[in-house]
Amino acid sequence: MSLTDRQNEILKAIIEEHIECAQPIGSLELVEKQSLNVSGATVRNIMADLVRLGYLNMMHVSSGRVPTDRAYRYYITELLIEGEVSLLDEVALRQKVWDERYELERLLANSAHALSEATGSMCISLTDDGFSAYAGISKILEMPEFYEIDVTRSVFRIVDDYELAKSIFSRSDGQNSLSILIGREIGLANMEPITVISTSCVIGGKKCYIGMLGPSRLRYNRIIPIVRYISQLLDEVGSSV
């Protein structure tokens, strides 16, 4: 079901405010912070419609609203305007990837570390034959979503279990395409507030996967281009070795 222009405006504003503050969003707060040219009452009515349509969750009767998995999926496919990878990120990623292009395991370990530094999230790289590397666990532990022990335990299961990690990070449709899994789409208990973005490539005849894991309130306009860029870099490496 498509949303009206006004519903799109309010939903986009709620999601982008929630991305920044990680707190439920109220109507008056939204009007003030997002400079919306509508009344608080109008925003409340639209938010009620968005709850009914499955785009927002109501935490408590008197509290604000938070975006659902469905809202983030809609945001990515319908509302998101991707940014450009900064020159600083391009240089850092290219240097760390290209310098290790002749040694696959070091290449993938460095790529995971570089992607973690660029995205501020936990990143994993894997091959089809059992190698895996990860970086950035300390980064996600600073985020409020991971204060929930059940969420963190599920994430650590992915780190500890190669087959589980591969089943999640290998879902891209083809080489250089991106897989974006949000919440329940990941298929693992307690991952409702989490997103995984991953891609695949072939290097030296081996199928490889790399991606990041973070809260669903990612800055998608910045993160998606970075993951796509490292995919392109690894594809260049695969073509040169």
Rank of each mutant, 00 (worst) to 15 (best):
K166S: 11
S167M: 08
E148S: 04
T127S: 12
Q175T: 11
S172K: 01
S172F: 06
Y147N: 09
F131Q: 03
N176C: 12
A135R: 02
D161K: 01
R171E: 10
D150Y: 09
P144W: 01
S170L: 08
L164C: 05
G136V: 03
S179K: 01
G174P: 02
F146H: 01
V155T: 07
D150T: 12
D150L: 14
M143E: 11
T152V: 12
G136D: 00
D173K: 08
S179C: 13
F169E: 08
A135G: 04
E145P: 02
G183W: 03
A135Y: 00
V159I: 15
D128Q: 15
S138H: 09
G174D: 11
I149Y: 13
D173S: 14
D160W: 09
G130Q: 10
D173F: 12
Q175C: 15
N176L: 15
T127F: 07
G130W: 10
M143V: 10
I140R: 02
E142T: 14
V155Y: 00
L141I: 13
A135I: 03
V159N: 02
G183C: 08
V159W: 00
S154H: 08
S170F: 06
V155D: 01
R153H: 08
L164K: 03
F131W: 01
D128L: 15
P144L: 06
R157A: 14
I149K: 14
T127Y: 07
Y134Q: 09
L181F: 09
G183N: 06
A165P: 02
I158C: 00
S167W: 04
S177K: 11
A135E: 08
D173C: 13
E145C: 07
I182D: 03
S167I: 06
I158G: 00
S179M: 06
F169G: 01
M143F: 07
A165M: 03
F146R: 00
I137P: 01
E142Q: 13
L141F: 05
R171T: 10
K166P: 11
P144E: 05
G136M: 05
A135H: 05
F169T: 00
L181I: 00
I158T: 04
K139M: 15
Y162S: 10
I158M: 05
D150I: 12
D160I: 10
Y147V: 11
E163D: 15
D128A: 15
I137L: 15
I168S: 03
S179N: 12
Y162L: 12
P144H: 08
S154D: 08
V159H: 01
D161N: 15
G183R: 01
